[in-house]
Amino acid sequence: MMSHRVLTVLNLAAAAAMVGAIYMALVQAPSAINLTETDRWAQRIIYFHVPSAWLSMLAFFVTFVAAILYLVRPQPRWDILARCSAELGIAFTVGATASGSIWAKPAWNTWWTWDPRLTTYTIVLLLYIAYFMLRGAIEEPERRARFASVYSIFAFVSVPITFMSIRWWNTIHPVILDPNEDFGLGPGMTVAFVFCILAFTVLYVALLANRLRVEYTIERVAALRARLLA
C-alpha cells in the first residue's frame, strides 16, 4: 500500500497539473486559423477530449492486465485494481463522449452521428456497464472477481474487432463527415496538447491511487470488525 506522504505528493502534483492544463488549453495555446469564431473555441476541446479518450483506453487496458494477473494468481488486490480502473475508465469515457458531442454540434452541425469511433465508444461504455452489472449480481467475492476477470478479457479483446467492423460498415456508405481528417496542430498547440495528455495521465494515477486507498481501508475495517466481533 502506498504511504500517506507519497499520496499527498501525487494529489498535489495532479492538482497542479490540472490547473496547468486549463491554463495551457485556454490561454497559452494559440487559436486555430481558418476557422469561424465558434469553431475556434470549439477546437480547444481537443485538450480535454483526446486526453479523456486516451485515459479511458489506458484505464480499460489496466483492467484487462489486472484481470489476467488475477486469473494467474488470484489475489484480491488484482481484482480491486481491475475494478477501480474500470470505474475511472467509465468516467473518462463519459467525459470524452460528452465533450465530443459538444464539439460535434458546431463542427459537424449535429450532436451525434453513427461514426465508427462514436459507435465503438458507445459499445465500450455498454461493455463496462455490463461488467459492473455482472459484478453486482454475484455475492461471493472470490467468484465475483473470477467472473469479472473473464468478462473483462472478452470485453477488451472485442473493442478493436468491433471498431474494425463498424468502420468497414461505414466506409461502404458515402462519407459525408470525415472525422479522420488531420487536425494539423501548430507548434504552440502541440506543446499544450502533450502537456494536457501528461496532466490527465497524472490525474488518472492520482485518482486510481486514492480509489485503491479507500478500497484497502474498507478491507482493513472489515477485517478489524471481524476480529473484534469474533
Binding site: 455498454l126 461493455l127 449480481a137 454475484i138 467468484r143 474487432i161 468491433t162
Partner: peptide, 21 residues
C-alpha cells in the same frame, strides 16, 4: 450468468455488445 442473480436479464446484456461484429 448461471450463478448470478437475475441471470436471464444479465445474459443478453453481457452477450450483445461482444457479438456485435
Amino acid at each position: 450468468t448461471v450463478n448470478t442473480r437475475a441471470r436471464e436479464v444479465l445474459l443478453p446484456i453481457l452477450l450483445f455488445p461482444i457479438i456485435l461484429p
